[in-house]
Write a protein that binds this DNA or RNA. Sequence first.
DNA 1: TTTTTTAGAACGAGCGTTCGCTTTTTTATT
DNA 2: AATAAAAAAGCGAACGCTCGTTCTAAAAAA
Lengths: 235, 235
Amino acid sequence: MMSNEMGFASFRSQMKLSKEEICREIFLHNSDSIKIRKEGVAVRNLSRILDAALKLCNSKGFSSMSLRDLSRESGLSMGAMYSYFRSKEDLLRMIQAQGRSVVLRVLGRVTEGIDDPLLKLRRVIQAHLYASEVLQPWFYLSYMETRNFPRDEYKKSIEAELFTENMLIEIIDSGQKRGLFKSMDAVLLGAVIKSMLQDWYLKRWKYYKRKMSVEQYSEFLLNFIESSILCDTRV
Amino acid sequence: MMSNEMGFASFRSQMKLSKEEICREIFLHNSDSIKIRKEGVAVRNLSRILDAALKLCNSKGFSSMSLRDLSRESGLSMGAMYSYFRSKEDLLRMIQAQGRSVVLRVLGRVTEGIDDPLLKLRRVIQAHLYASEVLQPWFYLSYMETRNFPRDEYKKSIEAELFTENMLIEIIDSGQKRGLFKSMDAVLLGAVIKSMLQDWYLKRWKYYKRKMSVEQYSEFLLNFIESSILCDTRV
DNA sequence: TTTTTTAGAACGAGCGTTCGCTTTTTTATT
DNA sequence: AATAAAAAAGCGAACGCTCGTTCTAAAAAA
């Protein structure tokens, strides 16, 4: 159907989203919270803690996950875990902040230097889907636990949500001004596109059961959206 | 833009979704859980409990809401509350089951006797939006707390989610077979329509801030979807 | 008086967090 | 290369608190 997009595999390798890479970033950005000095040790155990936390939070929710659960699942003792975060809430903050930073980085990277609104729209949609495919538990957690964030983090979380949405809205707007897209409420369009992007990581079990790949979903979504918003000046 | 749909106001009055009506239904359907005999007393206090529970759950989540919070907010003592539900989990089940039953009733009612796929699609979309407008806290709670349901209720909840989706899929399918809708993946289309319906009650704060009414959202959604799926055999 | 409803103290369990200690790893010195 | 000193990391029992739930007695209604 369309080209000039990258496949999921190349996206994954280009964006450096491996577990280790991410834990390394968390380690470097949270020296206030993390008492461990040696990177090797920190990354290894952070990885175990985050795996366990994401698994437990995604199945029973953050506030129903006890630190004893987390200790059992991660294989670390209570005391040891407290060398990797200051408090339970602090752990949530770290996870959430990292997810946010990845989204900003990825969306920034795939759109830089792109001018054509249609191409830009495709890139954003695809990148968002791909990123949420790689980091599904991160995205899911951020979405479901927003309510439990402390005031500051809550605000940042809302801002990040609106940032993505505004990105979409601006693209739509510029596409409409150039006569490429039909005239319709850009704000609402941005909102519903966002909701379709979110469905991919919120209802992952459903798509998994239907053996749907992220590429398939991505292509469907692009076709669906384009056939609704594109002007008829092309085939 | 289009007619043969009802306005929000008439929907509200026709479907009998007042707080009292709903509490009465809950009282009648849960005689096992509710120890109170007199309907008047039960409805009055159920109403206070449900108001409080929905408020607290929607702001901090079900598992972060303590029964002492609930007691304070509802004005009832611990002991009194336990005459209206068997356990905290039981309370969640009651709320959730009632929401489910309303959706089934409403969607059944608005589609009965309707044959034309396009009209049926419009009706389902609109009814779902209207119902979630009236019962936003119910819908939000059901969506966010599915994970905390006990096994049986969890299954029923998933089934209800798929029921709505299958309703959409069947309508799309029949529309395609009659040559009214373009040929495209009906299952995926159903899924993304569902996600846009859900956005209305999940991101209510956003639409509220933008002063968007349910009628506006409904009309936008219908136009957006129709312009993507309708065949070109009309203006 | 009898029945229904409400009140709130009491109970055991489990929570997040802390802290003194042990074990492991690194560094320094021979 | 061996060893002692120092630093880093890990451990888990213990603490104070809050949780969901129960129970008995009081209040209200019939």
